[in-house]
Structures are given as C-alpha cells and as structure tokens.
Amino acid sequence: MPELTMGELTRILRECAGEGEGVAHDGEFADTLFTDLGYDSLAVLETASRLKRDYGVELTDDEVVDVGTPARLLELARRQIAARS
C-alpha cells in the first residue's frame, strides 16, 4: 500500500466523492474546508471508510464530521498509522 500523502488522499477523495470545486493550487486545497470544496459530510464519511479499508485507520463519526479540511484529515490518519508501526 502506498504511503498516505496529500496526493494519495486527494486521489481517494476524488474517487469516493468526485472532483471538488474551484481550487487551483494543492496548498490551498489542503487547507480549504471540505464544505467550501463542495464535499458534504457524506463525502468525508465515504473517504474515511476508504481510509479504514485501505490503511486500517479508524476514525469515529464525530472525528470525521469535525475534521474540517483535507490537511487535518491527513494529519489524523497519519498519526494513527505512525502509532501502529
């Protein structure tokens, strides 16, 4: 399984929930709220379930709903992956 990077998370997000809206640069993307990217809570939930499936990352529903941005989701996921290894 590839290392979980922002590029990989973005790919998963697009696969699960389609293209986001109107963000030109990757840096901006990572720190933009999911809602501003056009991703609703179900889109984030779907992405989280893929992270669980592919990376064994377990996030509670509350964590998923409150996660806010792609950067924050990546950070939470990577922390779990690191703690395991």
């Binding site: 389609g18 293209e19 991703y39």
Partner: peptide, 8 residues
C-alpha cells in the same frame, strides 16, 4: 453534471 454528483 459536475463531477461531485457522479459517484453519488
């Protein structure tokens, strides 16, 4: 349709 709508 926008890409966001296709997977759902």
């Amino acid at each position: 349709l926008p890409g966001r709508l296709v997977p759902q």
